[in-house]
Design a protein around this nucleic acid. Structure first.
Lengths: 229, 229
DNA sequence: CTAAGATTCAAACGATCGTTTGAATCCCGG
DNA sequence: CCGGGATTCAAACGATCGTTTGAATCTTAG
C-alpha cells in the first residue's frame, strides 16, 4: 500500500525523469522521431521503464501533455474568473481578456530551467500534428477553457457576429501557437538576427497589441463595397 | 538521349504519381509516419521506385516542397512586382501587399482536385517541423520572397521601427500558416460546427482585415499610459 | 528477519523501417 | 529485327522500432 505520502519523492522519480526527457526529446525530434531507447537512455532509466510506468509510448505522450496542460488551463480559467469578479458585473475589456489568456503561456516560456519552454514549443507543434488521437487529446484538454473565453469575448463584444468571433479567435490562437512554436522562424524574416532571447514581458506587449487590433477591427467594413470577384 | 520533348508524359509519370501520393500521405501521417511501402503502394509503383527516381526518402521530401513552393514564391514575387509597378513610384498600401502575399496560398487552397489543398496544409506543418533539414529547406525556399515583402512593408510603413516590423510579420506569417494548416481546430473554438467548407474569398477578407489591423496598430501606444495590471 | 509487492534490469521478441541488389522488362534508335 | 540504356520488379539486406519476458533487486509491512 502506498496510500501514505511518506517517501514520495523517489516513488515517482522515475516517472518524472521520463516525462522530462520525453518533453525535451519530443520537442527536438517529434513523437515518431524519438525512440524509446534514446528516451530512456537520456532519462537514465531502463528501456522497459516506460512500458512499466505508462503502459505504452502513446500513453506516455498523453501523460506529457496532461501534466502541463491540465494546470495550465485551470490557471487560465482562474485568471478569467478573477478578472470577471474584479469587473463586478460589467464585461472586462477585450485587452484584459487577451492578456489573461496569454499569461499562462508566457509564464511557462519564462521558466527555462524546468522544461516549461520545451513544453510550450512542443504544444505549438501538437496543434498541427498529423496524429488524430493527439489532436483529439489537445482539443479535449483545451475545450473547457476555450468555451469560457469564447463567452467572455462574446460578452465584451456583443456587436460582433458569432461566426466572425470564431474566426478571429482562431486567428488569435494561431498567432500565439505559431509564435511560441516556431522560435527560429523569426530569423527567417529578420534575415539572420536570432533575436537575443525571449523577453516575455515585451513579447506580451507586442502580442497583445497585435491581437487586440485584429480582434477589434470593425466587422464587414467592406460588406457594402463587396467583392467584384 | 531524352533531349527531345516527345513522349514526355509517360516519361515522368512515375515521378508525378509518387509526388502526389507523398503529398497526401505526408499531410495525413507526417514524414516519419509515412512508410515507403504505404507510399509506393498508394502511388501504384514499385517499392524501389522512390530510391530510383529521387535517391532517398529525404530527397523525396525536398522534391515535394520544391515542386509547389518554387512556383508559389515566384508568383508571390511577381504579384508584388506588378503591384509596385502599378503604384508607379509610390509605396503600395499595406492592405494590397498583404493581399498579394495571401493570394498564392489561398489560390492553392481553392484547387482541391489537384493536391494543392493537401500541400498547403502540409506546408503549415513544416514550419514547426522538428527536423532541422526540413526547416532549413523551407527557410531557403521562402527567403527571397520574405526579403522582398519585408522591404515593401518597410517602404509602406517608414515610421514603424524595424524590429517591430519583424515581429509583426512573424505574427502575420504565423496566423496564415496556422489558419491554413489547422483546419479542424476551428471547431475546437466553435464547439462542434465544422464550418461547411473553406470559402477562399471570404477567408481572404477575414484574414486581410485581421492582419492589416495588427500590422498597422500604433507602436508602443501604451508606453506612457502603461499597464495598471 | 522475513516474505511479498514494487521496481529495475538485461535480453530477446516479432514487426517494420529505408535501402540495395540483380535479373526481368520496357522503350526506342539504328 | 536487334541491341542498349532506362525503368520496373520481386526479394532480400541490416538496422531499428515498440513491446514483452522472467529473473534480479529494492522497498516495506508484519
Amino acid at each position: 500500500m502506498n496510500l501514505h505520502l511518506r517517501t514520495l519523492k523517489p516513488q515517482h522519480e522515475t516517472r518524472t525523469r521520463i516525462l522530462d526527457a520525453a518533453e525535451e526529446l519530443f520537442m527536438q525530434h517529434g513523437f515518431e522521431g524519438t525512440s524509446m531507447r534514446l528516451l530512456t537512455s537520456k532519462a537514465g532509466v531502463n528501456l522497459a521503464a516506460v512500458n512499466y510506468h505508462f503502459g505504452s509510448k502513446d500513453a506516455l505522450i498523453e501523460a506529457v501533455f496532461r501534466r502541463r496542460l491540465d494546470p495550465m488551463n485551470a490557471e487560465r480559467i482562474a485568471e478569467l474568473d478573477r478578472l470577471e469578479k474584479s469587473a463586478a458585473g460589467t464585461a472586462p475589456a477585450p485587452e484584459r481578456i487577451i492578456r489573461a489568456f496569454l499569461r499562462a503561456s508566457l509564464a511557462m516560456i519564462e521558466d527555462a530551467r524546468s522544461g516549461g519552454r520545451n513544453f510550450i514549443r512542443l504544444l505549438g507543434r501538437a496543434y498541427t500534428e498529423p496524429s488524430k488521437p493527439i489532436r483529439a487529446l489537445i482539443g479535449q484538454l483545451y475545450g473547457p477553457a476555450m468555451e469560457r473565453y469564447k463567452t467572455a469575448f462574446q460578452r465584451a463584444l456583443p456587436e460582433l457576429p458569432h461566426e466572425e468571433l470564431i474566426w478571429r479567435m482562431h486567428f488569435m490562437f494561431g498567432t500565439l501557437a505559431y509564435t511560441l512554436a516556431a522560435t527560429d522562424t523569426v530569423q527567417l524574416i529578420a534575415g539572420c538576427k536570432p533575436e537575443d532571447r525571449y523577453d516575455a514581458k515585451l513579447l506580451e506587449e507586442r502580442l497583445t497589441a497585435f491581437l487586440e487590433a485584429g480582434l477589434l477591427v470593425p466587422a464587414k467594413a467592406r460588406s457594402t463595397v463587396k467583392k467584384a470577384a
